[in-house]
Every structure is written in C-alpha cells, then in structure tokens.
Design a protein around this nucleic acid. Structure first.
Lengths: 203, 203
DNA sequence: CTATTATTTTACCAACTGGTCAACTAAAGG
DNA sequence: CCTTTAGTTGACCAGTTGGTAAAATAATAG
C-alpha cells in the first residue's frame, strides 16, 4: 500500500525539540519542517494543523516520561522520600543538561504550554489537563502505597497531596527557568517532603 | 512644552489587560493600540518596541501588587499563617473573578511571561527575575519577623523558605489555570503552611 | 501672536504566518 | 509489470507581523 515514510516521526521529534525549548507561537510550521528535513506539503499530509502536531507531541512526551520516570518508581520499593528525591534529582539533571546545551533551562514542556496557551487554545489546555490528571493518579498510587506501609497517616488525602507535589514541582521548574539556575531546582527540592504531610482534612 | 498625552498610560493599561489574559506573542502591536484607542504611530513615539512596553507593564503590575497586597502584610501583625492565608485568599478571589469575566483563569502574569519568554527574550527574563527577587525579599522580611516572634525555629532559612512559598504559589496558579478551576487554588492553598517549616539546614 | 515642542496621523514596508493545491514520484500488492 | 495507494514537492495565497517616516496638528511658554 503505497510508500512508507519517517516524516511523521521526524515532525513529532522536531516539535518536541523546538517547542519544548522555545514556545508554541515562536516556532512556525516552516521551521518545524526545516528542522525535520521535511517539506511543508508533507507536514499537512500528516497533520491538520500545527495545533494537532503539538497535541500529538505532548502525548508522546508524556508517554515517554511516564514509562521511563514514573512507572518504575511506582513499582520500586524505595521509601516515599527516596522516590521523590529520585524524581527531583532527575529533574535537576535535566536542568543542568538543558543549560549546558542551550544556555538556558527549558523547564517543563507541559507547564510551559499550559501557561502559554490555556486561555487561548482550549483543546491544548484539555490535553494538558488530562496529562496532569494522569500524573496525579500516578503519584496517588505512590502515596497510597506509602500509607499502606505506615509511612504516612491513615487519613492522608492522597489525591490532594499528589496534586500539591506536582504543583510544587511545576513551581520549581518555573523558578529554575526564570532564574536560569538549575541549583534552585536542587536546593528547593528537599522541601517537597513537607508537602507529603497534608494536614488539611477538609480538602 | 508641547501638548500632553494620556496615550502612554493607555498603552500600558492595554498591555496589562491583553498580555496578562492571553500571552506575549498572541497580542500584536496593532491590537494593543486599538484596545488603547491609540494609533500605531503614537505607540512608537512612546515605546521603542513591543518588548519595551511589556517590560514597563511588568514593572507597573509588580509595583501595584507589592504596594497593595504585600507591603500591607509586612506591616500588619497577623500570624504567619494568617498572612499567607490572606494572600492565597486574594489569589483565589482573583481567579474567581477572572473566570467570571473571561471564562478562564489568567494566572500570574509574571509566571506566564516567565515560561513563555525566558528562553527567548533575555531582557524580559531578567526583569521577571528581579521582580521575583524583590518578591522573595518581601517574604523574607515577613518570615524573619515570625522567627523573631518565636513562631518559627531560630535556624529557619528565611530566603529559601520564601522562595519555596513563591514557587508553590506559582505552581498553584499554574494548576488552577490548567484545570481552569479556581477551587484548586483554594483547596491546595492550605498546604503552604507546611512549607514554612523548612527543615533543610544545608540550603 | 508666534515659535517651539510634543503628539498624532496616515500611508507604507518587507518579512513572515498558517495553510492550500495540483502535479509528481516511488513503492508495495496483485 | 502495472495499477493502486501513499508520500513528496514547490509554487502559491491572503492576512498579519513588528516597525518606519514624514507630514499634520495641537498645546504651551515666552
């Protein structure tokens, strides 16, 4: 059935690369194509629009992060503290790497696009909302396991705690990017453990 | 000497209005002018570029927020907890208002622009970095006062704690905006108090 | 009243935006 | 081998982008 092509994957990787390191609006379809070594006509053969490619790329990034960084953590039997330390350390390492390669921290691609587009591109906002939801559910599992093991009080609100931790991690990303300093991610990371003790019963 | 004009202020307000609720790149100079009731020629009479207007607007927003929301808090003699509760509550009210007026949460204008532009517009990143710095210093004062009053341990790292709290507030803004739900800002707000107990001596 | 100065207006520019289209080409299936 | 199908190409479009320049206008200080 006709010829095969790598153009689609090349475009997705191009989008992950360019949009994560810059922003949605600063990257044009033309540049996306040039960077992928693909002609614009091919772009519109595989994707309806720049928005659609972005959505596909977001899901691809999330799938990768979940499979490689979060799922292994759920299955491991490290302590709660060590689990989040490990995650934060990975985030620190990515910051250092990003600074070395591009001279600046690119931050979290989900958070970046969420703030840039949530008020304007409802479809993209919804995709990121769902990614965050899945993310929260993963952390919820980790926290529930900890509750079962007696590391956390029995009345812990796992969902709210998970959400708080992600919010804080996003906040760290934001501060690191703004100050262009990976050390912020490292130094402020240790405070996450304080968030595990969610004392708000009414949440 | 020559005629006077309100165009400059009108343009600043226009920028605060449009850029806060959308994004830097999605608002053009033309729209900025139309919204201010000013011709494009006048824009470039008062500002060198869209970037310059944005910088002026950022400082104007920060001055307003500092004078009206933070300074009064430094001078008040509420408990630490009540101070942050009050701040978070204001942020919640703004979210509710934003949702009522625009159908969505616009989030924190500093955080928004920081994530959108930090990797591309170094000048703007620096302006926001400095605003965050001043913000941290304000919170540091509040925390130091609390330490003096014995509300917090004597070895509290005020600067790191202040930075953590702002990071968390930015994270809440981000989550609220992404989920388009002011209640997130409210429900997760109460966890801030856990951040005040910064147990990381080495930071 | 006039000269000076600040502001406003209009028309304009080249570069770029996301997106379209029809012609063309290569490969796989029968 | 030839038809079908999938992928590629480059020319093209209308609308928009940030920014310019010169002429017109209004207010103020002397």
């Amino acid at each position: 059935m006709g010829r095969t092509s790598e153009a689609k994957d090349k475009l997705i990787n191009s989008a992950i690369d360019l949009i994560s390191n810059r922003s949605y609006s600063s990257v044009g379809v033309q540049e996306l194509c040039d960077n992928a070594g693909v002609k614009k006509g091919s772009f519109y053969h595989f994707f309806d629009s720049k928005k659609e490619l972005t959505i596909v790329s977001l899901r691809a990034m999330w799938d990768f992060y979940r499979e490689n960084c979060i799922i292994p953590l759920i299955e491991s039997d490290l302590s709660l503290e060590d689990k989040f330390d490990s995650l934060l350390h990975k985030s620190y390492e990515m910051s250092v790497n990003s600074k070395e390669c591009n001279g600046c921290l690119s931050g979290c691609p989900f958070g970046n696009l969420a703030l840039e587009l949530s008020t304007q591109e409802e479809e993209i906002r919804l995709v990121i909302e769902n990614i965050f939801r899945e993310w929260i559910e993963c952390f919820e599992k980790i926290i529930n396991k900890s509750v079962e093991r007696g590391e956390l009080p029995i009345d812990t609100n796992s969902y709210a705690t998970a959400q708080s931790i992600i919010a804080y991690m996003e906040g760290l990303s934001l501060m690191g990017k703004t100050f262009n300093d990976p050390e912020i991610v490292k130094n402020l990371g240790c405070v996450v453990r304080n968030l595990s003790i969610c004392s708000c019963k009414e949440v």
